[in-house]
């Protein structure tokens, strides 16, 4: 065998060995399965409040601008709250944009706001707009209760911006 052939084979072998390592690292890279982001056009008409299928991970992420077009007239009136803010508790600083959807609160993982709070029930409360566009808070039979400004909720109650809702150690309020 000529010296040249052997040198080429020697370097070629090292190259192939490293190629295997690099391909293996690429496989690992493609194997990092986190979350999948899918954009889809919602074909169904305005669904009844309460169905929470989408899961948005970015805290307080605002939807794109075209999504800000509310369908219903009553949501366009001035002074309507636009976001829900967690004021106190472990999630303090979190905001959720209000778009006429129901917001569920609780320790259950499919809640809109997953409360990491020892005093919260798994399905603790929900906040939803009624027919008139007025936001309503309702306690879902929680163990420790939902307090609207010191008052324990017993029935669905209309919610004014700036009024604190207290669930365990977490305080939430609507903001304009």
């Amino acid at each position: 065998m000529s010296e040249l052939t052997l040198t080429v084979m020697r370097l070629g072998f090292l190259a192939v060995l490293w190629l295997f390592v690099i391909v293996a690292v690429q496989v690992i890279r493609s194997d990092l399965f986190g979350t999948r982001v899918t954009q889809r056009a919602a074909r169904r008409p305005a669904a009844a409040p309460g169905s929470a299928q989408g899961a948005r991970q970015q805290q307080g992420a605002r939807p794109p601008q075209q999504q800000q077009q509310p369908r219903r007239e009553n949501r366009q009136r001035r002074g309507a709250p636009t976001q829900l803010v967690v004021v106190q508790g472990s999630l303090a600083g979190t905001t959720v944009a209000l778009q006429g959807q129901t917001i569920t609160l609780g320790r259950a993982h499919d809640s809109t706001i997953v409360l990491d709070d020892d005093y919260a029930s798994s399905r603790h409360a929900r906040i939803y707009p009624d027919q008139g566009g007025q936001w309503v808070v309702e306690d879902l039979g929680s163990t420790n209760g939902t307090y609207l400004d010191r008052q324990r909720l017993t029935a669905p109650t209309p919610l004014q911006p700036g009024t604190p809702i207290r669930i365990g150690r977490t305080v939430i309020e609507l903001r304009k």
Binding site: V37, G54, R56, I113
Partner: peptide
Amino acid sequence: SSFGLTNRTTNTTTITPQ
């Protein structure tokens, strides 16, 4: 925390654990 937003608007972004 995770947020599930159901939008009634035209576009829906869904982030699902893969």
